[in-house]
Simulated assay, not measured.
Amino acid sequence: MIRVVIADDQQLIRAGFRSLLDAEDDIEVVGEAGTGTEVVDVVRRMRPDVVLMDIRMPDGDGLWATEQIATFPELSGTSIVVVTTFEIDEYVARAIRAGASGFLVKDTEPVELIRAVRVVASGDALLSPGVTRRLLERVARGSQATVDASALSVITGREREVLALVGRGLTNTEIGAKLFLSPLTAKTHVSRIMAKLTARDRVQLVVIAYETGLVPLGRAV
């Protein structure tokens, strides 16, 4: 079972998410929270696989809560999906840096919410094409010039090629096709790159690709 905690200050939204997720055979909602402080407490007690995290909450918002959760080693197996709107991209960018594994807009289709929970629970990251380009270019504008490309010196030439394609949003299968590799070999390269660059997941690899200039600002994701 995929164990989920829902954090949102609107009870109606929490109830809607719970009803949707609990209807799935492989997903169980194990907790809810309406404030930042409350979600940190619930997550520490329940140790869920996935947290659906709203940004705008009282008593410690979702950004603060994401940063707090990321500091606890015992919660390293908990993935956070930020649920947001286009209007607060800058907060989402900071949440991704803090350790969030993806993000969704609040009016996403129900099937996409369910898919997001399963994707991050499997250890992958959620890169929603409709939001990723705008978000990551915002990240790049804010930090690209301050990150030294020499940070990539620990990876091989082939790994740089793979990272560039990850930065453009390609899947392992698509990377394999581009570089004449099997999807499994592409996945192995991605895992090694994450280890070498101490990236928590694929989302952080995309951010690194932008910040170091490996993927030029303005390049389509």
Score class of each variant (00 low, 15 high):
Arg138Lys: 12
Phe72Ile: 11
Arg97Val: 09
Ala100Val: 08
Met194Gly: 04
Val131Glu: 02
Phe17Gln: 08
Pro183Leu: 03
Val4Asp: 06
Ala23Phe: 13
Leu113Val: 15
Ala15Val: 10
Val139Met: 09
Gly167Asp: 08
Ile155Ser: 07
Thr171Asn: 03
Thr78Trp: 05
Ala15Phe: 13
Ile69Lys: 03
Thr84Trp: 01
Gly213Thr: 08
Thr84His: 01
Glu87Trp: 04
Val120His: 07
Val39Ile: 14
Asp22Thr: 14
Val162Arg: 01
Ile88Arg: 11
Glu161Thr: 08
Arg45Ala: 14
Val111Pro: 08
Phe86Glu: 07
Ser191His: 09
Ala65Cys: 08
Tyr210Ser: 04
Glu161Leu: 05
Leu127Pro: 00
Val39Gly: 06
Gly123Phe: 11
Asp9His: 14
Glu109Lys: 11
Gly34Ser: 15
Arg134Gly: 02
Gln144Val: 02
Ser143Leu: 10
Ala23Ile: 09
Pro73Lys: 01
Arg115His: 14
Leu170Asp: 05
Ala199Ser: 12
Glu28Asp: 15
Pro48Tyr: 07
Ala209Leu: 05
Thr146Phe: 12
Lys187Ile: 02
Val40Asp: 06
Glu211Lys: 13
Ser150Phe: 12
Gly34Phe: 10
Gln68Lys: 13
Leu21Phe: 09
Arg94Trp: 04
Gln11Thr: 09
Glu90Gly: 05
Leu113Cys: 14
Gly169His: 07
Gly176Asp: 03
Asp124His: 12
Leu197Met: 09
Gly62Ser: 10
Glu137Pro: 00
Ile2Met: 13
Gly142Trp: 07
Ala125Thr: 06
Lys196Ile: 02
Phe180Pro: 02
Thr108Met: 10
Thr108Pro: 03
Thr132Phe: 00
Thr188Ala: 00
Arg115Lys: 15
Val117Ser: 04
Phe103Trp: 09
Gly36Thr: 12
Ala164Asn: 03
Ile27Val: 15
Phe17Pro: 01
